[in-house]
Write a protein that binds this DNA or RNA. Sequence first.
DNA 1: TGCTTTCCGTACGGCGGCGTATGGAGCTGT
DNA 2: ACAGCTCCATACGCCGCCGTACGGAAAGCA
Lengths: 199, 199
Amino acid sequence: MELSIRYRMEMPPRQRLSREAWAEAGLRALTAGGVAAVAVEPLAAALGTTKGSFYWHFSDREELVRAALELWELEQTSAVIDELSTLEEPRERLRVLLTLVLTHRDGPDPVAQLFRDIAHPEVAAAVRRVTSRRIDFVAGELESTGMPRAEARRRAAVAVAAYVGWWQLNAVLPEDAPVGRDARQHAKVLWLVCEAALT
Amino acid sequence: MELSIRYRMEMPPRQRLSREAWAEAGLRALTAGGVAAVAVEPLAAALGTTKGSFYWHFSDREELVRAALELWELEQTSAVIDELSTLEEPRERLRVLLTLVLTHRDGPDPVAQLFRDIAHPEVAAAVRRVTSRRIDFVAGELESTGMPRAEARRRAAVAVAAYVGWWQLNAVLPEDAPVGRDARQHAKVLWLVCEAALT
DNA sequence: TGCTTTCCGTACGGCGGCGTATGGAGCTGT
DNA sequence: ACAGCTCCATACGCCGCCGTACGGAAAGCA
């Protein structure tokens, strides 16, 4: 057994990590670099610890991926709920929502980021749950404005698709697909999908 | 030097591979599994050869990725041109195009597949070129129908975003985001983005 | 102060992929 | 038939990551 480097270097004893700390680090890596970035050894180095810590809290790498996805789903749903809790009117709150999601954001939507690893079964299941709930919500709002059920669901799907694709475009052509303040006019276009009558 | 397994097994002498064969195999892997799937040794195994062949035609793995992307851009542009060569009227051919891209396809659009590796600089550049040309085309068609330049570009961006996102959704929720014959009604919704007047 | 439980550090073996070195096969021309 | 050129097979060394084994530090408790 070699001497501890930390001891020889007189480094302060770092604090011990919880399972949650690992899960949060995994989520950060997941949304930043995809499933491939959820790697034990690089994460350990980033956290200033070693694999020994990780394998105490988790059985294997897949368990960390699952924990990160669960964390993401929790934050994701609560974030959406918070965003909508201030709105009340059925029709106008949908319109505001469409504007909000494009203009009042700093980073890319994690869902759009996760589509890159859609081949991973756990990721696919999580994305499926969150995305279908979004479509359900938009379709429900449209129905409550008097739109027929089937048409409402189709429009909701297109609107969510446009939203997802918007972040993809933003990553590669931010001039054509801006987010934030510059996206106000684009949000109006997106609103057409929900509001305009079919000819 | 060991004896050649092929000789011992009396296998027929396989034919020699060209650089183009490698590039096509790379493109297939790229659109199927992303940049990570463009791996020399697995591809060599799939082609029934070894790395020796690869490194004769290419200097390294990155060169294969570039070759696959170039091949894709060539096929992609010619495919689009072929799709449009049968149409002539400025406004109606845009409408037909929007329907076409959702209904007359069997596999997912490679562009949507490539968005997963948008962090890769070569991929980003290729996707940027193809995507901006698509937006240019749609925006040009809209302008030729009398729509103001800025509004045309915004709508084109939203339409292309919806198209890109559609394939993402299709991968995870094919019920809500169908392609082929079942997408006719959805194509009409997409058409709203181009045609409807802003309120 | 010792003892136990909790947590982490380190070394190790393994695997898969990259790129290199080198020795050929197999065709081509003379 | 022989030389030369094109193309491929095999063996290596390397690196990054996974998961395990095991020992030891820290923290709580007696």
